[in-house]
């Protein structure tokens, strides 16, 4: 609690300038020490939080349609001889794979049921696929 008190005091004092009473100077010195000390780093991670979050979000957005990873997977997952504690071996790697192993061999792509083709909005979304739709200038 004392630390946070010091922080607020320090801001006021910075704006007010250097002409302060003697007894306050010691307090200011300690807060400055906490803020600048490289070893504690207690408040360092709070810097530019918003900017960091934005960057992380954008990075993730770019990664989502990474089809190559979705299709081919990463090579690390193919490590089959993994032993646990040098004694046990993972006998069943993924239960979902077992389930899919004998799936039906059929080339049909079942339609996404979330698309409702009765709504005007959905119909409008493909209008320009037809010759009756809008044409580009170069076509």
């Amino acid at each position: 609690a004392r630390d946070s008190e010091n922080c607020s005091e320090e801001h006021e004092e910075d704006s007010d300038g250097e002409e302060e009473e003697e007894d306050n100077v010691a307090d200011v010195a300690t807060t400055k020490f906490i803020l600048q000390c490289p070893f504690t780093g207690a408040l360092k991670w709070k810097e530019d939080l918003q900017q960091k979050a934005t960057e992380a979000f954008l990075r993730q957005q770019e990664a989502v349609p990474n089809l190559r990873k979705l299709v081919y997977g990463s090579d690390d997952s193919e490590n089959e001889d993994e032993e646990l504690g040098g004694l046990f071996r993972v006998s069943r790697l993924q239960t979902s794979n077992k389930f899919e192993a004998n799936a039906l061999d059929c080339s049909h792509f079942k339609p996404d049921i979330s698309h409702c083709w009765d709504s005007e909005e959905m119909l409008n979304s493909i209008r320009d696929c037809f010759v009756t739709g809008k044409w580009d200038d170069n076509q």
Binding site: R68, V71, I126, C129, G133
Partner: peptide, 20 residues
């Protein structure tokens, strides 16, 4: 291995969903 690029149609294009 194929190279796959997602093509997102722009907002005012009414040509359906994402293409690859």
């Amino acid at each position: 291995m194929f190279k796959m690029e997602v093509q997102k149609p722009s907002e005012d294009d009414r040509i359906g969903g994402d293409k690859v």
